[in-house]
Amino acid sequence: MSEHIIRVMVAKPGLDGHDRGARVLARCFRDAGFEVIYTGCHQTPEQIAAAAIQEDVDVVGLSCLSGAHRYLFPAVVEQLRQRGADDIDVVGGGIIPDQDFQFLYDAGLKALFTPGEKLDDIVEWFRQNVKKRD
């Protein structure tokens, strides 16, 4: 019997170390029955993309509170694409002003979550959007 378990990477790109949100999410995903690979803070987009492929995750969740999301989030998408892994979805969270949303969606992010989002809603998004792949 095949048993698909959602695998997620929670990653913190860039130099900011405010990992409260990332760690709360990692726990929340575990409690939702996902397998979570947490990278820790201070990762480069290259490191994140390489790790996501090695771990064959369904989604990479990025958290950034430093304001550098406009550079870092698209860079992760781009690194995945360069490595032939554009089927791995990238979502982002953190302090992201409304006016950056379109820019980030255009850059290939699949969803953006900002403070105040309910954990259950985030989990639900993953359940709805993660597709089984072959």
């Binding site: 378990i5 990692a26 726990r27 995903f29 575990r30 409690d31 939702a32 029955g33 996902f34 397998e35 979570v36 690979i37 947490y38 990278t39 820790g40 990762q43 290259e46 490191q47 994140i48 390489a50 790790a51 090695q54 771990e55």
Partner: peptide
């Protein structure tokens, strides 16, 4: 309890990711 897991070993080896 939940069937989920946080796989944390990788954090220590992440400098070799690339």
């Amino acid at each position: 309890f939940t069937g989920g897991a946080i796989l944390g070993d990788r954090i220590r080896m992440q400098r070799h990711a690339e």
